[in-house]
Structure formats: C-alpha cells, structure tokens
C-alpha cells in the first residue's frame, strides 16, 4: 500500500509543484517526490515486520531525504503516530485511527500550527477525526479511509478561504486567498492513494 502511495506522490510531482508555486516557492512537489522515492527504495529493500515499522521507515526516510519544512512535517505525520503504539501485525480501522490521532498531535506540536492556519493540518486533523468517528461506528478499513479522504478533501477546499500563518505564503496576506494549500493537498493525496490501493487489492 505504501509503495502505491509513493507512486502516486511521484506522479503528482508537477501538480503539487504547480499548486505550491501559486503562493509558495513551488518546490513542494519536488520535495514530496524526493521523499517518496526515498521511502519506496527503503521499503523495497528493508523487511518491515509490522505496521509500526512501515510507518516509521516511511517517516524517517522522508525526514532524512527531503529537507525543508515538509520533510519534518510529513516525516512526523508518518513516524510520529507509531511511537507509542504496541506492535501491530495488521492494519485495521482502530489502529489507523490511533496512528493518525497520535501523529496529528505530533505534527501540531512540532509545527505549532492549528486548523485555520492554511497548512496541511487543515486536511490532516479532519481526516484523523473522520477515522476516529469511523472506528467508533465500527466501519471497515476501506470505508474509513474513504471517509478520511473526503474529510481531507473538504480540508483542502477550506484552505482556499484562508490567509497563511506559516511558510512563505505568510507575507502574502489576502493575496493567498483563493489558492489551496499544497501540503493539505498532499495529505488528501495520501488518503486517496490508500483508498485506491485497497480498491485494487481487495
């Protein structure tokens, strides 16, 4: 599944770069693709015994290879959620909700951003909430991920109405209105990739 996420991120390189260049410096696509190439290579060579290891390796590789703010933030999103998680052999809704619940907190603490700051948190927090809700309702993994994807998508739309509080778009003020946040778009893309992979591999 993670290899598919990597593939989708690499394919989206130009799209993400273009979104970023409207109000940022345009390197988000290239940065994410660098990270995706690194974790794809590592996941293919390393034998990850459990869910925890896959998340951890993915995050660590992104943090090591990307640089910039995205490297730390997306690295934390993957590796920050499994720190305190007991080892899991299989991924179910409860586990995924627990991972993203923890990682959302870790990213917020690291980046000091909250919902409404026009960052990837605007997609990640609602997606994480959607997973938690789905877990509470006893939904299956596919449906839960689909809910998270939809919540992230709404988060991306929401960022269009916001002025940026972080990053290079910060100095733009109102000029950033109407443009979606590139990091939030990446969060959505990651959940979408998960769902598409499950659809193909069910």
């Amino acid at each position: 599944m993670f290899l598919h996420i990597g593939e989708e991120i690499i394919n989206a390189k130009d799209m993400l770069g273009k979104i970023d260049s409207e109000i940022g410096d345009g390197d988000h696509g290239a940065g994410m693709a660098t990270g995706a190439e690194a974790f794809t290579a590592k996941l293919q060579e390393a034998s990850c015994h459990n869910v925890n290891a896959v998340f951890k390796v993915t995050g660590m590789e992104m943090m090591k290879s990307m640089g910039g703010a995205s490297g730390v933030i997306f690295g934390t999103m993957f590796s920050g959620g499994v720190k305190n998680l007991p080892a899991k052999e299989t991924l179910d809704t409860n586990t995924l909700a627990a991972i993203f619940g923890e990682s959302t907190e870790a990213v917020k603490k690291r980046g000091k951003a909250s919902v409404g700051d026009k960052t990837m948190i605007d997609a990640l927090e609602p997606a994480s909430e959607a997973l938690k809700k789905a877990a509470g309702e006893g939904k299956g993994l596919y449906d839960s991920v689909a809910d998270a994807e939809e919540a992230a998508n709404q988060g991306v739309e929401y960022t269009k109405n916001l002025e940026a509080k972080f990053g290079r778009a910060k100095t733009l003020g109102e000029r950033a209105l109407g443009f979606q946040d590139a990091g939030a778009t990446s969060v959505w893309l990651i959940f979408k990739s998960m769902r598409v992979w499950m659809e193909k591999n069910e």
Binding site: G31, M63, G67, G71, V72
Partner: peptide, 12 residues
Amino acid sequence: LGNVFAAPTPDT
C-alpha cells in the same frame, strides 16, 4: 546544507 532553497535535514 539543504537542497536548493530548502532547509538541511535533521540528520545532516
């Protein structure tokens, strides 16, 4: 050093 116009990584 980071990549072009990007911050260095923590391990660097």
